[in-house]
Design a protein around this nucleic acid. Structure first.
Lengths: 221, 221, 221, 221
DNA sequence: CATGAATGAGTATTCATTCAT
DNA sequence: AATGAATGAATACTCATTCAT
């Protein structure tokens, strides 16, 4: 899985070869095909692996108050990828772009999207319950936020124009204050960091989160 | 160019072969390489072609009042692609995803993005001038809107979940009323249609707009 | 051996993989190589196994009168394979075709051929002794008959033209009457059935013959 | 076609690789796939090529009297292959053995078989007309003869026991005298040689026939 | 005995690109 | 300007065989 991750970052999806993955392993290319039925099968497994990781990481935030969690989630999309900024997200974008042609990927992508939406709606509903958020249609808000955050991230790394991000972040914060937060709730200036997937990053630790290379595609890695 | 468009729609970017393009031409594959230095060069030319088309089409809207133009622009992103919904957008997304690996594409993409932003800021500033819009930071608004619209479209066709779009559109309209429109401006219920690129669609004409398969990537086709 | 037989029927010789054989076993593929030095070695053993079976089955006919045995032998070649008509014979034909390239197979094939010829010459000589057959060169007759019968069977299943068989059978019967049978001997209308190899068929028994899927290649299975 | 022939002789069918064919060409392996859609397609074309050759060669015999032609045909099956005795026939046998698995081959094989049968029935009927042959069922005789001749040839080269051939030939001649020839017709001692396919043999010439490597499978090369 | 894991050496096929004509 | 033919370099996937356990 890790070799797959690294190869994906380095080569991108469409240039990804079985050899490139094997090269990042101690095993041979043939070993890959012994364990997975095909390159696609391997990638499907990889997507499952990412999703599992995402769900685990989200769970780590459960204790925090809704506003804090929401901010952590939002900031996560804007955080500069540490290791391989373009690499991973680009690869993931290619993968998303291939989904329409591949049944298997489409499913995985949907599952990841569902996970992201659920994360958001959970937070939003929690907030309403605790009174931190005003009553609202959590599904609608989640969809709007995801579109904006997803679009912002994609644009950031495909256009390599970090400047855009500030405008979008400001817009999002404003939106939240206007439609989501209760009058006395404010957007946390320095929220918890959304935990990174430390199975993929060279050496992370932390317990409170860690920086990592946050990001969430439909794949919600 | 048209053959390229069709091949791209039919095969997707990563499956696109020089042969597939030539097959949609009266000439041979070798002729492609006589006129373009490489497959990438051909695609770069195609992106230029799209951009030209976009600029021409935007110009057609110049006469309309700002609110009308803004609504036309917004709706354009949500319009269901008539001909080949997935095909074209998917291909374009793949292409965008490849940009980080290709200098040439990156440039084209930036140019397209600039064109889109300029379209928006032009409209926004026009609106402020005519009083239809309240004073605001047009660059910030443009960036926020583009992120949201782009994200919404990408998510629509990669996840094939049309439902999302309504939530996003509603959010955008709300946003416009809150931050852009003057108190007495309202979002046009049935705005002009953003003109389609009739060089690529079977046979369009119109002057007022035409239906077409609107869409605008960073590529602003 | 049985797994080998089944795999051979199902896959044909040239598509036969060690895995396919192992799959029809309770053991692993590696176990195959523990017991046999190579795939070819396994097949060589299989050919021995077939030959043994053949010899055992021929012995069961010893009691019958020569004309009866001869007819049983002849009819055997024309009998429609019950289970897997094409499968087995085809596989065997492939195997025979590979013989020229493999010393080991060639030997086995010769042994099988020798067994077949001996069966025939035994019958023919018995018949001369008992007076049922006229004096003749049993070796020559055996060779002629085997060529005809072998050719007929091969043509039947490679061309899938059952019609041919009747012409050949008629020709053979005529030949026998002319050159082999004594004036008062006639070709038995309903001779004993040549015994099938009940180690390979689902569950046969019989002593008097049994139906089975008779056939005899040079391999004389 | 010639490279295919040579590769087939040298490697056999199941070991036949595209590379092996290309190696016998001045072109590259890729060139093979430029001209043929697949290895199988190439072989299918090869079989057509053989059939064409066969038909052309048969035509060359048209002038000879029936008995002469019949003997030429019969002897052809017994003629020792000059160039590559085992090679070619073996390869063809493998190919025949693969036919049950391949629609395309099956068709070609049937066509070849039909050509062989027609050759025989034509000769037989001609003979009856000219009075050289007694009246008989030419289809039945053709089927019987083909089975015997085909079986004889297959057995000869898979068992490498030339001795058998004499017995079979004698049987065939006897059969012909008994069932086909008119009382005053005799089997020509030294008939015309069935023409070889000089497109495949290194350097043939002759006009009367030439020795070549006669043989006729269902493939009737 | 048995096996899960692993692999080296293939194999057909693809494709952007070239080039003689 | 155009092309049919050709190709080198890849690429996913296969398989008989090995081996540590």
């Amino acid at each position: 899985m890790r070799a797959t991750y690294e190869a994906l970052c380095a080569e991108g999806y469409s240039d990804l070869t079985a050899q490139a993955i094997a090269d990042r392993t101690e095993k041979s290319k043939a070993a890959l095909f012994y364990h997975y039925d095909s390159k696609e099968g391997l990638l499907a497994a990889f997507m499952d692996y990412l999703l599992e990781g995402y769900e685990h990481r989200v769970a780590l935030l459960a204790e925090y108050p809704p506003a804090e969690r929401l901010a952590a989630f939002v900031e996560w999309w804007f955080s500069p990828a540490s290791d391989d900024p373009t690499g991973y997200h680009t690869a993931m974008l290619e993968l998303r772009a291939r989904a329409p042609y591949d049944e298997r990927f489409r499913e995985k992508l949907r599952a990841s999207d569902a996970a992201l939406r659920e994360t958001l709606t959970d937070i939003l509903e929690d907030g309403v319950e605790t009174g931190a958020f005003q009553p609202h249609d959590s599904e609608a808000v989640a969809d709007f936020l995801l579109a904006t955050l997803d679009g912002a991230r994609i644009r950031r790394f495909t256009l390599a124009r970090d400047a855009y991000s500030d405008h979008v972040r400001a817009g999002v914060v404003e939106y939240l204050h206007n439609y989501v937060f209760s009058p006395d709730t404010t957007y946390p200036t320095d929220p918890v960091t959304f935990p990174a997937d430390d199975r993929l990053t060279g050496s992370t630790d932390t317990g409170d989160g860690g920086g990592g290379a946050p990001s969430a595609d439909e794949d919600a890695r």
